[in-house]
Amino acid sequence: MQPGTLTRPELTLADRCDRCGAAAKVRAVLPSGGELLFCGHHGRAHAEKLKEMQAQVLNG
Rank of each mutant, 00 (worst) to 15 (best):
H42C: 08
R27F: 04
G34Y: 05
R8Q: 14
P9K: 12
T7W: 08
P3G: 10
K51Y: 09
L11D: 02
K51Q: 15
L50K: 00
M53Q: 09
K49R: 15
V29A: 14
G21W: 08
T12K: 13
A24V: 06
V29D: 08
G21Y: 11
R8T: 09
N59D: 14
G60V: 05
E35P: 02
V26W: 01
C20Q: 11
L30K: 04
L11S: 10
H41R: 07
A47G: 08
R27M: 11
A14D: 04
G21L: 11
A47Y: 01
R19V: 13
A45G: 04
V29F: 09
R16M: 08
A22G: 08
K49E: 00
L50G: 01
A47Q: 01
G33W: 02
D15K: 12
T5R: 14
L37H: 02
C20H: 13
L11F: 07
G21N: 11
L30Q: 11
H42L: 03
V29T: 13
M1K: 12
L36F: 10
R19F: 12
G34E: 10
C17L: 09
C39T: 02
R19P: 04
R8F: 12
S32F: 11
K25T: 05
Q54P: 06
C17R: 01
M1Q: 08
T5W: 13
K25S: 06
L50M: 03
P9H: 14
M1A: 11
E35W: 06
E52R: 06
Q56E: 15
L36E: 00
S32Q: 11
R19D: 02
C20S: 13
R16K: 13
L58H: 00
A28Y: 01
E52W: 03
R44H: 07
R44K: 07
